[in-house]
Design a protein around this nucleic acid. Structure first.
Length: 563
RNA sequence: GCGCCGGUAGCUCAGUGGAUAGAGCAGUAGCCUUCUAAGCUAUUGGUCGCAGGUCCGAUUCCUGCCCGGCGCACCA
């Protein structure tokens, strides 16, 4: 509707005034009493046209009124020059019908988009533990994927596993040093063992310079293909991958393709001569670097002086492969904001290489612990994803002993909490706060859904057939307010598919649930005295149920029938 | 030093070139013989970090400053 209205306004403006184009905004007014949509077009044009905003607004209002569109109930001009549009009740009543017809397809993009987008996210390092900081990435990433799909983009969800590099060597060294005599295969929680050993190794190496030597020599042996170490690498790598897959399954995150750093490393080394030849990179202080000072991007080291490859070198062939092999148009990297400079450097190198494509880095700020510093696997001051989930489950069980599915409520609460922050906000994680289940949380939204299901079940048991209903009976303030919120859903999808502002989904879900709860206490749906109104309202809440479930679905939260 | 991000109610956070700046939590006062009170209704609470500038209009854009975080050559 927003788009349509913008076109109508533009048409009116261009007909009325001698203009090439018009720049203006169509927005939701702050208050419903100012109508359903408002535009500032008159104020924007005032100066250019040398007329007062009110005068222009009146002229536009008259022009649009002459179109005799049934969509509008009223068009109003208000000082200092707003034009407020009031949509008709009929429009919203029809919207309810439309949603019930389209069902879960409501809100989808109108046509398949031509653009193919790859979203790379998660990128965990093997042998490190999966902590709650990693959760933010997975949850934002899978939400972006879902939203883009809903908006009808062709999306490839990609993961890039960090299965090589010094952190691996450190952990393997730690195993050999401290756990050589243990039967590794018998360890029950292998992921935890690896994580702990990694932290142990980092600390030991930091404290004892001799260990530094030992670990370095192990790293060299590993890179030279030492058979025993290779086997250990393979085995532990698989343990980590198994753990990651299990966590993704728990969270409902899916990937279409996995890339591995250990494979890209080989490709990266192949293009070094060409990059050197073309003077995109150079030798410096024994290392190979890209000097990007002239672009204000500093220096990026690609190859260490010992000849080993760094992450930048691996990202170059991978970036190219994504376009060439997968035929994508846009490549999105979801990685925390601390790597912002790195991505600017990477994209610049690719540009200099002649690979000028659409690259996007979506950065989000990291997760810290309340009262502490940033979580770091190296320091071992982490809260593991699994531990947090267990803790939330136990809270749910205590608070709602009859809950049929505490796991999905707990996961919902976690996802919602993680996603409701904008990406520029650091999340100061407070476990106590995160497991609260009242207010702006997923249970609030899920509860609305469960309440609807409960009413629908009751209606079904009473044998009410509401397939045919007179929706024009929906004139109550709370009913229309609900329908108006439903109408905004497609615009929300469209917006987020362009801005990636995923926090808007939880906020939308809260607003919709809020309006439902408010309607629920003001209006009785099933009213034996008034069967026609009952049918109309059953249609309304069915539409609300569809949109609530779809909204939750986008952020991977279940919509329970019962709570 | 240079760069990026943040500074909005007691707390945690949304939001916006425009109409009285919002939500949750916390506080206060109410609401379960009625479709689930994980709920509803009402209410207290803000010089939108500071100072300038642009604009008809700035919390929003620009500049400077202050505070916090992060990044800037061999981690990813």
């Amino acid at each position: 509707m927003k788009k349509k209205l913008a076109e109508i306004i533009k048409k009116a403006v261009l007909e009325l005034f001698d203009l090439e184009q018009a720049d203006f905004a169509v927005e939701y007014p702050k208050d419903e009493k100012f109508g359903d949509y408002a535009t500032n077009v008159a104020m924007v044009l005032a100066k250019k046209l040398g007329k007062s905003p009110m005068e222009i607004a009146e002229a536009i209002k008259l022009q649009i009124t002459n179109y005799k569109l049934q969509t509008f109930e009223k068009i109003e001009v208000v000082a200092p020059g707003y034009i407020n549009f009031y949509l008709s009740e009929k429009y919203f009543q029809n919207k309810v019908v439309e949603i019930n017809l389209e069902k879960e397809k409501f809100g989808e993009g109108e046509a398949e988009k031509k653009e193919k987008i790859m979203v790379e996210y998660s990128q965990p390092n093997t042998l490190k533990e999966f902590h709650i900081g990693h959760l933010r990435n997975v949850l934002i990433g899978s939400t972006i994927v879902e939203v883009l799909r809903k908006a009808k983009y062709n999306v490839v969800a990609a993961n890039y596993i960090g299965d090589t590099g010094s952190h691996i060597a450190k952990c393997l060294w730690g195993i050999e040093k401290f756990h050589a005599n243990e039967n590794l295969d018998a360890i029950e929680n292998k992921a935890e063992f690896l994580g702990k050993t990694y932290t142990q190794a980092v600390q030991a190496i930091g404290e004892n310079p001799n260990y530094e030597q030992e670990f370095k020599s192990l790293q060299n042996k590993l890179e030279d293909g030492d058979i025993k170490l290779q086997a250990l690498w393979q085995k532990t790598r698989q343990w980590s991958l198994d753990e990651f897959h299990s966590i993704y399954e728990l969270l409902g995150a899916n990937f279409d393709v996995y890339f591995y750093e250990s494979e890209e490393e080989i490709e990266g080394k192949k293009i070094v001569p060409e990059l050197l030849e073309r003077k995109i990179i150079e030798k410096s202080e024994g290392a190979i670097i890209a000097n990007l000072e002239e672009y204000g991007l500093g220096v990026l080291v690609l190859v260490r002086k010992d000849g080993s490859a760094l992450y930048g070198l691996k990202d170059i062939p991978l970036a190219i492969k994504k376009f060439d092999k997968f035929e994508i148009d846009t490549s999105i990297y979801l990685i925390d904001v601390r790597q912002d400079l790195y991505f600017k450097q990477l994209f610049k190198i690719l540009e200099l290489y002649g690979f000028n494509k659409k690259f996007v880095h979506i950065g989000y700020d990291f997760v810290t612990l309340k009262g502490g510093e940033g979580m770091s696997s190296r320091k071992g001051n982490v809260i593991l994803a699994r531990d947090l989930i267990s803790e939330i489950i136990s809270k749910v069980e205590v608070k709602f002993p009859n809950s049929p599915d505490p796991l999905s409520i707990a996961l919902g609460a976690l996802k919602f909490t993680m996603l409701k922050y904008s990406t520029g906000t650091k999340i100061e994680f407070d476990i106590e706060e995160s497991v609260k289940l009242e207010g702006a949380t997923s249970p609030y939204v899920q509860y609305a859904h469960a309440r609807i299901c409960s009413i629908l079940k009751k209606a079904e048991e009473a044998g009410v057939d509401f397939a045919k209903a007179d929706l024009s009976l929906l004139i109550h303030e709370k009913e229309l307010s609900l329908a108006k919120e439903l109408d905004k859903f497609p615009e929300l999808i469209e917006e987020i598919s362009k801005t990636y502002e995923v926090q808007k989904i939880p906020y939308y879900a809260i607003r919709l649930a809020d309006k439902f709860h408010s309607f629920y206490s003001a209006c009785k749906v099933i009213d034996e005295e008034n069967l026609e109104l009952t049918k109309a309202r059953l249609n309304l809440i069915t539409a609300v149920k569809i949109v609530l479930a779809e909204t939750l679905n986008l952020i991977g939260v279940s919509a329970p029938e019962k709570m």
